[in-house]
Design a protein around this nucleic acid. Sequence first.
DNA 1: CAGCTGCGGCTAATGCCATTAGCTTCTGAG
DNA 2: CTCAGAAGCTAATGGCATTAGCCGCAGCTG
Lengths: 187, 187
Amino acid sequence: MARAALSADAVVDVALRLVDEEGPAALTLAAVASRAGVATPSLYKHVRNLAELRALMSVQIMDDLAERIGGAVLGRSADEAIRALMTTWREYVVEHPHRYSALVQTPEPMVARAGQRLVDIMLAALRAYGMEESEAIHATRCLRAAMHGFAVLQAENAFQLPEKLDETYDLLIHMVVTGLRTPLHRT
Amino acid sequence: MARAALSADAVVDVALRLVDEEGPAALTLAAVASRAGVATPSLYKHVRNLAELRALMSVQIMDDLAERIGGAVLGRSADEAIRALMTTWREYVVEHPHRYSALVQTPEPMVARAGQRLVDIMLAALRAYGMEESEAIHATRCLRAAMHGFAVLQAENAFQLPEKLDETYDLLIHMVVTGLRTPLHRT
DNA sequence: CAGCTGCGGCTAATGCCATTAGCTTCTGAG
DNA sequence: CTCAGAAGCTAATGGCATTAGCCGCAGCTG
């Protein structure tokens, strides 16, 4: 092997830091290369193209998120697990708002697989409610929709009023937990 | 006035049709100009730049949505209004998935104002629950988060499993309505 | 009716960016 | 010591947004 100054992981890392600091719009290969102290075309030795870099970033983000959330849910069940899950998710977004809005859900298998880990954690947390499989899948989707929607809107600064976001999120958690507990008698 | 073949509105219209048919990635000034039967720089006579075109598109989309939803909510109250609101929103997304994912929530005042119309409609629908103002604002945010999250995930094709999306959305509506009805005793 | 003015179009030019081609250099295995 | 290949580089290409500056026509003015 030749000098291993750089690697795919290292490039992704630089790109993530760039996005954290300067926002998703600042993500260009030129900027990443400059930060990595390398000429732009050199990046192609580690990453197929910009689209792949984006995908790799998404995978990394989802893995981070999955690790944190997996830990948070561990040992809790039902309502407490859901609360922990949602709280942890939001903490991540607050910590890295730009990073979250750089997330792309492409149909790429690599990204899909990383997303699957998150879905699995949610499904596991929902098993505690004694749902059958199909029911749990619907519930997972709702959970995802609620969290993701909130996260995206917050990352985009779409909540302008002075009301505290933490309180809103408490209400959202309450909605989800209540909705999971209350039987659905065919809408 | 000289020949009025084109106008800002017409450009936005062409751009929206382009996005509907070819997806958000196809939105380039070159493509819009070509569809409009005009040279690229001519667009600048009607639109300041690409960013402004995007913002104008978002405004147009939100206005469409607000008009539909306003009509759907009219004359219904409480749960029924919320159900109608959520159903109508989703219908729009299903009809124009690309268009929805082209939505940008910039901090631009123009876009914010259009978003405000939507928020106002939601707030009005929530008044029926007898909430005080601040409570209604938190509830509106949750409503938005849930709908927007679901819409974004669906537009991105993030729901892969065979379970029917309509059923999931019914569950989401149920969650929201139940959550609004059930008192929050401090999380 | 002649002339002016400004709008809305055009062509040409610039500069950034992603991507490709092809050369060079350094490293580590044999 | 040699050699292969990995990882870097420079140069070149083509797409795109954006800017500058020119042209012609509509409609008002005299």
